[in-house]
Design a protein around this nucleic acid. Structure first.
Lengths: 259, 259
DNA sequence: TTGCTCCTCACGTCACGTGAGGTGGC
DNA sequence: TTGCTCCTCACGTCACGTGAGGTGGC
């Protein structure tokens, strides 16, 4: 009648999501009322859209507006997931069809004064976090009357990929010094020798340049500790076409004297 | 370097999906070669697209064409899932915004000679199964030189919804008799008294009419055993717009003499 | 010598699906 | 009396994530 499977309403009873109107004390039979059918239909649709049971339970008694808001929020999450899927599909096609021509590796030293926002960020939140952080940094630079003296970037510790979260730093190199403005604080980039490779294309393909650069470093250089800086030469703030993005991936190395 | 998490390659080793080139016998340390990076990148993309690990393993040593075929098949599954998601979203919106105006219930008797394809079908396969079955039935009717004497339909036992699979029968009422033609076989609909409600709109919303009709039957009539016939008055073969679909849902009842 | 990384179990996750084994109503 | 439905555990699923507890290399 509701098109639910047999075990489903039992489980919903166990977790308190859809309570029978009565349970026979001797046989344990669950009885439901016709008025519960609509509720069951809602639950079934939300579950087909993979909404977690606790969230579904949250829509129970709330009025129309609160429930609609929860549903809308879930639909928006699904939209984002969909965008992500499209990106990964494109990235998969690229991987299968276009062999990576490794870009040349350049050795450079990095250090300098920046204005930075540093926070512990989950890996999956990184894109949206950056989307908010960089405009904030630009605004802070303008407020302080400073000049941007180089390429904006991010400092990504290993933990972000290896453990799913870590302290990411989004930075803008500046002239002069400033105090903290909102979340933006003065920050001096740790001095480091870097092997640098330019990545052309969407961020979703960044791992290919990481792979090429990391292989190169492990073959021909000596890797050093420390987070990996990325410099966003062409990024969403400059272009709306991911194919035109340019990112410098910077691998810390020990420069040994071998001459 | 590959942007995989720490436990992931360990698990891939356990299940034989990505073997290290060597394992230190004393410490158990896994060693990987730079040449494995590309493989890891492929695995990561396929996993982000939720391809099951056994399927990912299947892409291992196969050549480009076989691998591309597996990937293409997976992408097609994802496309279908996406279409389904869009349907359910629309259905959810309908459920929240448009209260169901219950259609009138009509009592009718059904019985007759048909040509039918009967097979055990999983619930999720029903739409694609019907898409193949009905053209086959029409072709069989034409081959046998028969006339279609009524509305085509399907006989859906409770099991399909309650247990995920059951013996579904797609049928076409015919004049006269015929032998088996391919999967199509002569079939006499079991005689039954039916409470019938017309459903207007996409199949995804069918449960609402089931709910309304089932509630009506349980309130005012006596339900009988047996599979539930559906008559496809306007269906995909007649119209490309799901909003124009018309389906008669037929609930078996006992007609008691109460006059 | 001290961290640090790597290791190996072992258990948790999430929403049911799937038997095993038993019981009330027609 | 015989099926049939409903019931209650209890375990399986799937791809890792998450500690607990231990060990080798700098």
């Amino acid at each position: 009648l509701t098109h639910l499977s047999v075990p489903a309403p039992r489980h919903y009873h166990d977790v308190g999501l859809l309570e029978p109107v009565g349970v026979d004390p001797s046989s344990g039979y669950r009885r439901y009322a016709p008025s519960q059918v609509t509720r069951a239909q809602l639950v079934r649709r939300l579950r087909e859209l993979r909404m977690p049971l606790p969230d579904v339970r949250g829509t129970r008694c709330s009025g129309y507006t609160a429930r609609d808001a929860a549903v809308a929020a879930h639909l928006e999450r699904m939209e984002r997931e969909l965008d992500r899927t499209r990106e990964v599909v494109a990235s998969l096609r690229t991987l299968l069809r276009e062999p990576l021509v490794p870009a040349p590796v350049e050795l450079r030293r990095m250090a300098g004064t920046t204005l930075a926002i540093r926070e512990t960020v989950a890996r999956s939140d990184l894109p949206s976090w950056c989307e908010a952080a960089f405009p904030e940094l630009y605004a802070a630079v303008a407020t302080a009357g400073l000049m941007i003296t180089g390429t904006v970037g991010g400092l990504c510790p290993d933990d972000v990929f290896e453990h799913g979260a870590g302290e990411f730093a989004a930075f803008v190199p500046i002239s002069g010094t400033a105090g903290a403005i909102g979340r933006a604080e003065p920050y001096t980039l740790p001095a480091a020798d870097l092997a640098i490779m330019l990545h052309a294309g969407p961020f979703t393909d960044l791992d290919r340049t990481y792979g090429a650069l990391g292989s190169h470093v492990s073959d021909q250089l000596r890797a050093a500790e420390g987070p990996i800086p990325e410099l966003y030469v062409v990024a969403p703030q400059h272009s709306s076409d991911p194919a035109t993005y340019r990112t410098e991936v910077c691998w810390p190395v020990h420069l040994t004297k071998e001459a």
